[in-house]
Simulated assay, not measured.
Amino acid sequence: MSIVFSIITQKGGVGKTTTVNALAASFNKLGNRVLCVDMDPQGNLSFSTGADSNDSPTVYDAITGRVRVTSCIQHTSMTDIIPSNILLTGAELEFTGKNREFILKNILSVVDDKYDYIFIDSPPGLGFLTINALSASDYVIIPMLPDIFSLQGLVQVYETIEYVQKASNPELSIMGILINKYNKRSKLHKEALGTAQMISDNLDIPIFNTNVRNSPKLAEAHSLQTDIYSYCPKCSGVKDYDKISTEII
């Protein structure tokens, strides 16, 4: 059986898709069978992996029952992925009935024995698509920036996770808060990290021991649809995500 991770945030721009991309690359490098699921209608993860999200079946086609989920999986040079596109924005309006939070879980059960790890890139915000991602997951990772705005959204994310644990997935666990784009020389970042630690203690949420340093090379690799281990194997971001992978394992 595969272990399923959701990577969720309240706001965009905190390195959510970068985290999914990097973890998938790291786990693939370790010899694992990895599947990524792009649940963000923006499709940034799909683009960064070189997947075709225009002329091929996407996760929208799978959750609406138009095609089998196995027909949506693309085998790119970087990872296996179920891509997404803007059509996914209409999914919430299409599904209004009972048990709609289990749609993704049900379709992923078809491929559960084919992968070791599944990473779900959920959209910013805490709506229908994110609830589906959490309901299908074993663990959730919460990336955030070391700033006040990310800290403010952390409590909302926690409340959403609590709701899912009570309503649809009592086995869901928080793997941890992942601090992205961290600069140890910044006084503001140090203060934000201290505040994040206080919040994590109060809410009983772990924080990863490794903070991911700001690494423009990661963004460059994604924009060029290139594997991070081919593009910048020695950059700080790659080293940090390798440590994050070790912590997860």
Rank of each mutant, 00 (worst) to 15 (best):
S137E: 00
L193W: 13
L104N: 08
A51R: 00
G15Y: 09
V111S: 03
S135G: 05
M144P: 07
Y60P: 08
D52R: 00
L23C: 04
I161N: 00
L126T: 05
N183Q: 08
F149G: 10
C36F: 07
K166L: 11
D240Y: 03
A22K: 08
S173L: 12
S48E: 01
A136L: 01
D61R: 05
N106H: 12
K243T: 12
V67F: 09
M78K: 02
N85K: 09
D55F: 15
S109P: 11
S46A: 03
T89I: 14
N214C: 14
Q225K: 11
N85Q: 07
T79I: 02
L87Y: 15
V111R: 02
L93S: 09
I244W: 04
K29T: 04
L129F: 01
T18G: 06
S230P: 11
F208R: 04
V155S: 14
I207K: 12
I179M: 09
H189D: 06
I207V: 09
V59H: 07
D116K: 10
I63D: 02
M198K: 15
L224I: 03
R213W: 09
L30Q: 10
D240V: 01
K16C: 04
I199F: 12
T226A: 11
I244M: 04
P41S: 03
F128N: 05
V110K: 10
Q10Y: 12
S2Y: 10
G237A: 04
R185A: 12
N44S: 06
S168K: 12
Q156T: 13
G31Y: 02
I177F: 08
R66L: 14
L172N: 02
D227L: 00
A219K: 08
L23E: 02
I103N: 03
M39E: 00
L45I: 01
K16N: 05
T160S: 07
E191S: 14
A51P: 07
F95Y: 06
T19Y: 02
K114V: 13
A25I: 02
D240L: 06
A221R: 00
I174C: 04
T89F: 13
S245Q: 12
P143C: 05
L126Y: 01
T96F: 15
L88E: 03
Y158T: 10
E94F: 10
I174K: 10
N183T: 06
D242N: 12
I141D: 01
P41G: 06
L188F: 13
N106G: 05
